[in-house]
Amino acid sequence: MTVGIPRAGMYYRCGVLWENFLRSLGEDYVVSGETNKAILEKGSALMADESCLSSKIYMGHVDSLLDRCDCLFVPWLSNFGADGINCTRFRAYHAMISNIYRERAPKLLTYAIDYSGTQDMKHAGDEETAFMSMAKALGRSKKEIRDAYRAAKQISEEDFARRVAQAEAVADGEGTKILIVGHDYSIYDAYIGRPIIKAFQNFGMKLIDANLVDRRQAQRDFRKLSDGTLPWTVSRELLGGVVRYRDRVDGIVLLTGFPCGPDSLVNEVIKREVDDKPILYLLQDGQDGLAGVETRIESFTDILTYHGNGER
């Protein structure tokens, strides 16, 4: 059985866990290719116009996998624990896919995380319990699943810690530094985010991803910018990242796919609360690629370099 993993959405947060889990079980799996124009166009055709850019990309990836796998990997991610919830879209993908492809009825491999347990889902629970619920679908014993999960979890946590350490090193290092605040699936997307990163790098900027923070620390830090009613885990971590890095960077870039629900509010918090750094707000709808954005990136880096020179 080949499992298909869309290279979109939570893949960027959980992909290391997913891949190592499947690999250690010896399952065949395939990750969809990098986002390109065709994938985005396909996804846009499948989704309502007013859906967010990243969900269009996600659905494009799902579509690209249909002929290449026996089942799609679509977890139900209501939350990651007690520290907030996820955007409702990550609960909706499962039902959206089964209804968009109703005729075709692709098989879906799912684990459902719902720490709060309020959803009376069959397999709700913490992440490990949720993974165990895949035992039957994968034809494995509970023990095999548990061992594979624990090993993969450790690898993914080590990998993340390593990336955080790298980001910290960049923040402590030399050069003109920019904190980029956005969902990881926007920042690292080959079509949406990476061209922007590259453009900044071409101007000699050092980039720090606000997602790369100690997550437990970030859950405390975000309260310096917001009260505790901020619901989303990822948004809290991003604000925590802003708190963590703001004094060590020269400017901040907000990268948002139109019309992202959480970002519509979180960006406003940053704009209102962070007044000592230049902020560039890049809102993307996937329409015109890098054209137009490039000049804004250039003039922003100009400001930062002058700013920096003046201060030093």
Partner: peptide, 27 residues
Amino acid sequence: SFGCTPEIDAMPVLRSISSDYDIPILF
């Protein structure tokens, strides 16, 4: 309202119901 995440996500489901029961739907 425009961009309402959960209700947009319900649209494919509503379309399925609409076609299964032959009941027109307006968004």
